[in-house]
Simulated scan of single mutants.
Amino acid sequence: MIRPYTPADKEQLLYLLRLNTPTYFAAEEESDFAAYLEEHVEDYFVVEESGKLVGAGGINYFPDEHLARISWDMIHPNFQGKGIGTQLLQHRLQVISSKPGINMVIVRTTQLVYRFYEKVGFALEQTEKDFWAKGLDLYQMRMPLAKV
């Protein structure tokens, strides 16, 4: 089940982030994620399976640029590779499609995950070594909304 984030989910999401650290996130990103949940959430969704939070991901909007950004994606390690991330991404792309004036979607990810987004139609735009932390490079990707 995909549903909107509520503040009651915060501790479970921080735990989910820790489960994905250091493989996909750097330890120092935890405070950034907590601040995001407290101050910068626009649309953020969680995935529950049998009452357990197993994934999450958000959207931020930049209407002046006609742009939406996929943000803070994470899936519980025991549930990766089961299609949950794809379902969550498709859900968010549908939400973005319903927003007037948005015609481009970007995602900022790492070298570890960019191929996941590539399969959906995102194209690599730029990379920056050690952007998130040592060993976690920025892979910025872009996709016209018309492809959704």
Rank of each mutant, 00 (worst) to 15 (best):
residue 77 P to G: 08
residue 37 L to T: 05
residue 48 E to L: 14
residue 138 L to V: 04
residue 93 L to S: 02
residue 52 K to P: 00
residue 55 G to N: 07
residue 15 Y to H: 07
residue 102 I to A: 04
residue 85 G to C: 06
residue 33 F to I: 15
residue 63 P to A: 09
residue 141 M to I: 06
residue 26 A to G: 14
residue 73 D to I: 06
residue 126 Q to R: 14
residue 70 I to C: 03
residue 147 K to C: 03
residue 2 I to M: 03
residue 24 Y to H: 01
residue 95 V to S: 07
residue 69 R to D: 13
residue 65 E to A: 14
residue 35 A to V: 06
residue 85 G to N: 02
residue 24 Y to I: 02
residue 95 V to H: 07
residue 88 L to K: 04
residue 49 E to V: 10
residue 9 D to L: 02
residue 115 R to E: 13
residue 56 A to C: 14
residue 146 A to F: 05
residue 120 V to H: 10
residue 132 W to E: 00
residue 48 E to W: 09
residue 131 F to H: 15
residue 81 G to Q: 03
residue 118 E to S: 13
residue 19 L to D: 00
residue 8 A to P: 00
residue 100 P to C: 01
residue 27 A to T: 12
residue 143 M to Y: 10
residue 24 Y to D: 01
residue 33 F to R: 07
residue 49 E to G: 06
residue 51 G to C: 10
residue 49 E to P: 01
residue 123 A to H: 11
residue 67 L to P: 01
residue 41 V to I: 07
residue 136 L to C: 01
residue 22 P to T: 08
residue 40 H to K: 15
residue 22 P to R: 08
residue 132 W to S: 02
residue 127 T to Q: 15
residue 110 T to R: 11
residue 135 G to V: 10
residue 96 I to V: 15
residue 71 S to M: 14
residue 79 F to I: 00
residue 35 A to N: 08
residue 110 T to S: 15
residue 42 E to V: 13
residue 45 F to Q: 09
residue 31 S to V: 15
residue 70 I to D: 06
residue 27 A to M: 03
residue 115 R to T: 14
residue 10 K to D: 05
residue 88 L to V: 13
residue 35 A to K: 03
residue 80 Q to V: 02
residue 20 N to Q: 01
residue 106 I to K: 14
residue 79 F to D: 11
residue 38 E to W: 00
residue 139 Y to F: 15
residue 23 T to G: 00
residue 122 F to G: 08
residue 5 Y to W: 10
residue 35 A to M: 03
residue 80 Q to L: 01
residue 89 L to P: 01
residue 127 T to H: 08
residue 141 M to A: 10
residue 3 R to K: 02
residue 31 S to K: 14
residue 99 K to T: 03
residue 116 F to V: 04
residue 28 E to Y: 08
residue 129 K to P: 00
residue 41 V to Q: 03
residue 118 E to T: 09
residue 116 F to S: 09
residue 125 E to L: 11
residue 11 E to M: 04
residue 35 A to W: 09
residue 94 Q to W: 02
residue 100 P to Y: 02
residue 21 T to W: 08
